[in-house]
């Protein structure tokens, strides 16, 4: 896409930080170009008309140009916003960080884009926030190419209720009497059923182990901040 202009691409702002006097650097998740870094010039001026639009959790259409890796934003159209509140809002930042890490620059991921939209929609409802996060993590791992079958062991044996399982990196789900997740939870995940109580906790531990394996020691900043926020509530 070097050197070409992109018109009104569906996108979400993942992160924004001030740059120089009046500009903003944006990490944007686009439908057809993956994560794109761009500069929005003049946004922090007093009379800027688009400052109120270029915020995370708003569905936008963006046009951008330039030959270098850092694109220049040329047009913004507002589509819809997801006014997340409280816990859903804090968790939204975590979802953004996951996308930032697992979706590569200029790597089109339209499936993850629609999973992201669905996840924001679920977070907006404000119920079952943790479940929305778990299924987003599952979708993200699958679409990013790290899929692990939830309905059978790595060796092909079907998942049994009452049996405990563990996850081994580069291998998959294996039976293990001391394992962190039960067969019931894996069955619910495979069927994308409602996660409650124990299943919710086990799914969290399972996905955390999977994600951490791919993060290779890189810390998730939003996860640490989220843990501290929850401590105060």
């Amino acid at each position: 896409m070097n050197g070409s202009a992109v018109y009104l691409q569906p996108a979400f702002v993942l992160q924004h930080r001030p740059y120089r006097e009046t500009s903003v650097l944006l990490d944007v998740f686009t439908r057809d170009f993956g994560v794109v870094s761009m500069i929005a010039k003049g946004v922090r001026k007093e009379k800027s008309k688009i400052a109120g639009l270029l915020l995370p959790f708003s569905a936008l259409r963006l046009s951008f140009v330039d030959k270098t890796e850092l694109k220049v934003l040329s047009q913004v159209e507002y589509v819809d916003s997801y006014p997340l509140e409280r816990l859903a809002l804090y968790c939204g930042f975590y979802v953004n960080e996951l996308v930032q890490i697992f979706v590569h620059k200029y790597d089109p991921q339209p499936e993850i884009f629609s999973c992201y939209e669905r996840c924001l929609g679920d977070l907006l409802l404000g119920e079952r926030i943790e479940q929305a996060l778990r299924y987003f993590e599952l979708d993200l791992l699958q679409e990013a190419g790290y899929a692990v079958a939830m309905d059978s062991e790595a060796n092909g044996n079907p998942i049994m209720t009452g049996q405990r399982y563990n996850f081994l990196a580069d291998f998959g789900i294996v039976a293990d009497n001391e394992g962190l997740v039960g067969g019931e939870t894996l069955s619910i995940l495979a069927a994308r059923g409602a996660l409650e109580g124990r299943a919710l906790l086990e799914a969290k531990l399972l996905f955390r182990k999977m994600l951490d394996g791919h993060l290779q020691g890189r810390p998730l900043k939003s996860r640490d901040v989220l843990a501290k926020i929850i401590k105060y509530l």
Partner: peptide, 9 residues
């Protein structure tokens, strides 16, 4: 609060 920059309470 800016969880992506690691700024918390």
């Amino acid at each position: 609060l800016s969880p992506l920059d690691g700024i918390g309470p």
